[in-house]
Design a protein around this nucleic acid. Structure first.
Length: 823
DNA sequence: GGTCCTGCGTTACC
DNA sequence: ACCGGTAACGCAGGACC
């Protein structure tokens, strides 16, 4: 029988000593289906060069006799094949060793005689990755599957009967068909607890939200709300949670930080109550992978922790200062969490349960809507990288890049390099880091008529143009090769050389680069969430490849290639600075891949001609672009010393759009008043170049502060807790506050934003440390006017006004006068 | 008791 | 530990006078 099928979740199992793939997905009739399929599993034994055919025959015969016996199965080599392959730029002869059971590949590979073998590779390809490559059944693409319908069949120990699916098929033929629209069945969930430590106290309630489905399950107060269901015990509530998930039968179960909180908490409480959290379609319980970050897997349902996906893949498109559900939902959906302070209510033991239920439900509503909204992005990244959604939704950038590579190696007839293991990783990590990009020190001042040039995908275009990769690195200079600029590497001045024969890595990157261009065009022609997501995925892959090459965990790690990329980055950036200066422009500032310069007496048209001229001289696919013309731009000195501050500037274009970088305005660890005051002052200066008005504004702000007319809300300082509180060596204000919160029994988590304000000293002696004056936002006290003047407002505007020879310190009484003030 | 320097810590830019 | 180098700058604490 034939079905049309979209694979969603991948798993595998052993049967009769062989490894089989078990793929859960949907049919075009919206039925849940399971495909069972076998798959060759193998590794490569790369032969030493010049091994004779006779010797090869002999070694093949020997390998074919290898077998191992473990407690419950016997594994052996099924057959071997000789192939001509590529490996890291070399043509090699390699024996493909087919093995009965994937799990035993490693052990079997260690039993083969090594006399003529140079290297063993692809032992570390996970079974699912192998399966997708071999059978070409890629996640979230559509297929026509022909096979044997399993209905209470004894085959595979009656697997079809043990699974909660509508159809179970043993695949015989798989044919890719045209993609059709697919929208998964999503169920979002969220729990509320009294304690944040996993499993510490009981779960108060669980909310579930799907399409036309809203539930809050609780074992606390009953409610008249139709969506609230009351249970007499936590155990009953948890069982109902499982029951409803199974009844709803989602493709995706999604939470926000649910890998780190909700699911581990549910597991802990289920254990405590001695009940089973059998959410899997085979009634199995969630499996938690070890590692720094837990990953919670449910069989047959893709558990998506949306927070993790947003953090790695989506955060770059967000303006949000934190990735809290509230802020992200606010930005993407225009909808916020319910205004209800759960922590405070629980702590004070004054809980308005009806409000609490509403709040709990809303969290799931937001998570549901966000998952729905980001589905095109989840879909495209999964389709393109070709790993299951469970992995891609949790993957870091390096893993996305690496999996994209692995799934495309066949086209290059290339054997995959191995993953580094412990010693190699620690060796790589211990290495001296390579010099980074160049930043030009600006001359502080206000400038008119600016142009900004920047390189399009600079690192990527350099890798492609100069063929930079692990496999194309030459051990010594050859004629007709690419030569790096001189650079410092391991404390020595040196150069690296790269082959001109295109390597698979730069070639693959060139494809990514071109696809990025192509899909950007596609999006422009047909703007919709899917074309946008597709374009963004290639943009992300393209931008991440350079970082990947320098990442110690990468299969294709090459610090030499990475150092060379950066040497070229510095060289080309400096060249553009020189060229613009030589043509009578004035380079004001430059950072990595961009140069800002004053047009001086030149016209914009002339600047564009210069751009064209530079582009004609640039090698390969390197390209310089016009970022824009700006009518004004401001650079300031560093707070310490008379140097121009890097990574801090503000510019305005002809549409009066302002671009602010690095200034306190864009830093979340400054209070709102300082940020807003600085922002206003930058606007006044840039819009009409009027520093007098700016000064007037500043005076008003200072006056309000001095009169205590500024609400405390605008004076809250926010700092993130980046590690466990007891790991800190320095006692800074935010650590003091975090400790205070802990002693009050308030939840303290890594990653949380600590909020506080600076109050007047209660000590009679002056000069108390800042941390001694720091108070929680709801702690009674008077804010310290002097602190906010001297440590927040003035520092944020001082260097800006200094450009106009104005000394703002003189606006504050009692402060020593440094300069004469003339306005 | 002030000034200078340094290390820690956070956040931003690209 | 899951891209990483360059950079600004506040706070705290010790050296020094």
């Amino acid at each position: 029988m034939k079905i049309k099928f979209i694979p969603i979740d991948y798993d595998y199992f052993d049967y009769n000593g062989r490894t089989y793939a078990k793929i859960i997905g949907k049919t075009n009739k919206n039925k849940k289906a399971c495909i069972i399929d076998d798959c060759d599993t193998y590794f490569w034994a790369i032969l030493k060069p010049k091994t004779s055919d006779k010797q090869i025959k002999k070694i093949q015969e020997k390998i074919e006799q290898v077998s191992i016996k473990s407690t419950n199965r016997e594994s052996k080599v099924i057959k071997t094949e000789l192939h001509n392959k590529n490996f890291l730029g070399e043509q090699v002869k390699a024996i493909k060793v087919f093995v009965t059971n994937h799990k035993d590949i490693h052990e079997i590979s260690h039993k083969i005689p090594m006399k003529y073998i140079d290297k063993r590779r692809e032992k570390d390809i996970p079974f699912i990755t192998r399966y997708v490559i071999e059978k070409n059944l890629k996640p979230l693409h559509w297929y026509e599957i022909d096979g044997e319908f399993l209905n209470n069949s004894p085959e595979f120990n009656g697997i079809d009967a043990s699974l909660n699916v509508d159809i179970c098929i043993k695949a015989e033929e798989i044919k890719q068909i045209k993609d059709q629209e697919f929208f998964p069945k999503i169920l979002a969930y969220d729990i509320e607890t009294a304690e944040v430590e996993i499993g510490r106290s009981e779960i108060l309630m669980v909310s579930l939200v799907g399409e036309n489905f809203k539930k809050v399950l609780t074992c606390k107060e009953p409610s008249k709300q139709p969506y609230v269901e009351h249970f007499k015990s936590e155990a009953d509530m948890l069982l109902a949670f499982v029951k409803y998930v199974k009844q709803y039968d989602p493709d995706i179960l999604t939470g926000y930080f649910s890998d780190g909180f909700d699911l581990p908490y549910l597991r802990a409480r289920a254990k405590k109550n001695k009940i089973k959290l059998n959410l899997g379609i085979d009634n199995s319980q969630p499996v938690f992978s070890r590692g720094r970050m837990l990953s919670a897997k449910i069989k047959g349902i893709v558990h998506v922790d949306l927070y993790r996906f947003i953090r790695t893949v989506y955060a770059q498109y967000l303006k949000s200062e934190t990735l809290s559900l509230d802020e992200v939902a606010g930005e993407l959906l225009g909808e916020k969490k319910t205004d209800f302070n759960a922590t405070e209510a629980v702590r004070a033991n004054k809980i308005d349960w009806q409000e609490f239920y509403k709040y709990n439900l809303q969290d799931s509503v937001l998570t549901y809507k966000l998952t729905e909204k980001l589905w095109p992005d989840l879909l495209e990244v999964t389709k393109i990288v070709q790993e299951p959604l469970f992995n891609t939704s949790r993957a870091g950038l390096s893993s996305l890049v690496e999996n994209y590579i692995l799934h495309n190696l066949n086209r290059f007839n290339e054997i995959a390099e191995k993953k580094p293991i412990h010693e190699e990783i620690s060796e790589r990590r211990s290495r001296e880091s390579v010099e980074g990009a160049y930043v030009l020190e600006p001359t502080p001042g206000l400038y008119d008529n600016l142009a900004v040039f920047d390189f399009t995908s600079m690192h990527t275009s350099i890798i492609v143009t100069f063929n930079l990769s692990k496999a194309t690195l030459l051990s010594k200079k050859q004629k007709n090769c690419f030569e790096s600029p001189e650079l410092e590497f391991e404390n020595k001045k040196t150069r690296f050389y790269f082959s001109k024969k295109p390597g698979f890595f730069p070639t693959l990157l060139k494809e990514i680069f071109e696809k990025r261009k192509q899909f950007k065009q596609e999006f422009k022609k047909d703007p919709n969430p899917i074309t946008k997501a597709r374009s963004n995925v290639f943009k992300l892959l393209s931008a991440s490849v350079h970082g990947y090459q320098g990442f110690f965990g990468a299969r294709y790690y090459s610090l030499e290639a990475s150092a060379t990329v950066l040497a070229f980055v510095r060289k080309f950036n400096k060249e553009i600075i020189d060229k613009t200066n030589k043509q009578g422009y004035k380079a004001i500032y430059a950072d990595t891949d961009s140069v800002v310069f004053a047009l001086n007496k030149h016209t914009e048209k002339q600047a564009l001609e210069l751009l064209k001229k530079i582009n004609n001289q640039l090698p390969g696919i390197m390209e310089l672009d016009l970022e824009g013309f700006f009518k004004r731009g401001l650079w300031v000195t560093k707070r310490t010393g008379d140097f121009g501050a890097k990574k801090k500037y503000a510019m305005i274009n002809k549409n009066n759009e302002i671009k602010i970088r690095g200034f306190e305005t864009v830093r979340r660890d400054w209070c709102y008043l300082a940020r807003e005051t600085q922002n206003k002052i930058l606007q006044l200066i840039l819009k009409d170049g009027n520093e007098k008005k700016a000064l007037e504004y500043l005076k008003q702000a200072i006056k309000k502060l001095k009169n205590r007319e500024i609400p405390l809300k605008q004076l809250i300082i926010k700092t993130q807790l980046k590690k466990p509180i007891d790991d800190y060596k320095a006692e800074t204000p935010h650590i003091t506050i975090a400790r205070k919160m802990r002693s009050l029994g308030l939840p303290i988590n890594i990653g949380m934003i600590i909020r506080y304000y600076i109050a007047e000293s209660t000590k009679t002696k002056k000069k108390a440390l800042v941390r001694e004056r720091a108070k929680l936002p709801n702690e009674p006290g008077q804010y310290d006017i002097e602190y906010y003047l001297k440590n927040q407002i003035l520092p944020s505007v001082e260097n800006i006004m200094e450009v106009f020879n104005l000394d703002v310190n003189e606006l504050v009484e009692g402060k020593q006068q440094k300069k004469l003030f003339d306005f």
